Structures are given as structure tokens and as C-alpha cells.
Amino acid sequence: NITNLCPFDEVFNATRFASVYAWNRKRISNCVADYSVLYNLAPFFTFKCYGVSPTKLNDLCFTNVYADSFVIRGDEVRQIAPGQTGNIADYNYKLPDDFTGCVIAWNSNKLDSKVSGNYNYLYRLFRKSNLKPFERDISTEIYQAGNKPCNGVAGFNCYFPLRSYSFRPTYGVGHQPYRVVVLSFELLHAPATVCGPKKST
């Protein structure tokens, strides 16, 4: 009989979030998941669920729940959905087409922007091929755009693959930082360890 609440607040209220290319994953298990708490945590810009209804979450049980978190800019949030393409979905964080879970995003301009520009958040701009779903690539190998090998040196047709967002508070919403948490629900042929409040007794 599990009584402890799932530590969603640790994920959502973390002081620092990860850069999207090096997104963070927390496995959540053996706890009571009260998803209604999430609705009250922040004024969400996005709370979209796929393959599951957000209002039914509190009635369900899962084997595992994974919470992935990272920062992107406002106009990239739409890429965090099944079947999307674009720089983020292709080279940084890719959801599977049959994704079961929820994408939660909110504006973090007050936390993640600086007047002089916050350069701490990076994204991958160049990659030889698209990522597979939930693949994480943290390599910093020089990207070869031409025929000549780069031998690890940046220059003509040889690019450092990561680029930094420079978040400034005066930017338009599309270029402001957004914190994203992706909850993916895993149903294996194994005992369910993460249940809503109704199912945990």
C-alpha cells in the first residue's frame, strides 16, 4: 500500500533546468501520483496529453512515469509533440509517434532571462542524422558540413554543433524561455507502482 506522493514538485520547481540537447530525465515510481497538483503548480502555457485524457490521469496506474525536463524558446514548444519536425524535434528531443503522456510548458522569462542575455541554455544546431525517439546526444564533436574532414577544428564548413540561446527579458514571447516537462507513461507487463490517489488504497 503506497502512500508517499510522487515528487513532481522537485521536477517542476527545480531551480535550474537542463539545456534541451542534454535534457534531464527523472524516473518516478512507487508513489501516489496526484496530477491535479500539477494544474495548480504554475499558470501553464501548455498542458497537452496524448493517448490519455488529462482529467482521467488520477484514475490510472502505470509501471513507471518518466519526467523529462529542459528549456526551449516559446515558438519551439509546438515541436514537443508526436510527429513534429524542426531543429528541436530533429536534433535535441524527439517524441515517438505513439507517445503516451503529457507535455507541460510554461513561460520562464522571469527566471531564465537576463538583461545582458542568459547564454547558459544550449541547443544542438547541427547533426548528421535525426534523433530516434527519446535519444539523447550530448556530443560536442565538430560538425563537418563540407567534404573536407574537420579534424576537430572549427572553421570553414566545420561547425561547433551547439548554439546558445541568449534569453533577454525584452524579447518577444516566441523568443522567451519556456520550461518544459514531458511526462511519459510506461505500461509494462509488470506491477503498477505509480497510481492516482483513488487507485492507491
Rank of each mutant, 00 (worst) to 15 (best):
Ser19Trp: 03
Leu41Lys: 14
Ala42Gln: 15
Gly172Cys: 02
Arg168Gln: 04
Ala81Glu: 09
Tyr171Cys: 01
Tyr119Ile: 07
Gly117Tyr: 03
Ala33Ser: 09
Pro161His: 04
Leu131Lys: 02
Ser166Leu: 04
Ala192Gln: 13
Arg27Ala: 11
Val173Met: 14
Gly83Ser: 09
Gly51Met: 06
Val182Ala: 05
Leu125Val: 08
Thr55Leu: 13
Pro161Thr: 04
Tyr39Ala: 15
Phe17Ser: 04
Pro133Arg: 04
Phe12His: 04
Leu131His: 03
Gly74Thr: 02
Asp68Ile: 04
Gly196Asn: 12
Tyr50Lys: 03
Ser19Thr: 04
Glu10Pro: 06
Lys199Ser: 15
Arg25Pro: 00
Ser129Glu: 14
Ala105Thr: 12
Leu122Tyr: 10
Asp9Ile: 11
Thr140Asp: 11
Gly83Phe: 11
Pro191Trp: 09
Ile138Met: 13
Asn92Glu: 00
His175Ile: 01
Tyr93Glu: 00
Gly117Ala: 04
Glu135Pro: 03
Val32Glu: 09
Gly172Leu: 00
Leu41Ile: 13
Tyr35Arg: 09
Ala33Arg: 07
Ala67Arg: 05
Val153Asp: 10
Val52Cys: 10
Ser113Val: 02
Phe156Arg: 07
Gln84Asn: 07
Leu131Glu: 00
Asn30Val: 06
Ser184Tyr: 10
Thr15Leu: 10
Tyr159Glu: 00
Leu183Phe: 09
Lys128Glu: 11
Asn107Arg: 04
Tyr35Val: 11
Tyr91Phe: 13
Arg163Val: 15
Ala14Lys: 10
Asp68Glu: 02
Tyr39His: 13
Ser166Val: 04
Gly172Asp: 00
Pro177Tyr: 03
Glu10Asp: 12
Arg124Met: 00
Glu141Gly: 11
Pro43Asp: 12
Phe17Pro: 05
Val153Leu: 14
Thr15Phe: 07
Tyr171Ala: 01
Gly51Cys: 05
Phe185Met: 13
Pro54Glu: 14
Ala33Thr: 09
Thr63Phe: 08
Ala89Arg: 03
Phe99Leu: 05
Gly174Thr: 07
Thr3Glu: 12
Cys6Ala: 06
Asn120Asp: 13
Asp90Val: 05
Ser69Gly: 03
Ile138Gln: 10
Arg163Pro: 10
Arg127Val: 01
Pro7Leu: 09
Gln144Gly: 07
Leu131Thr: 04
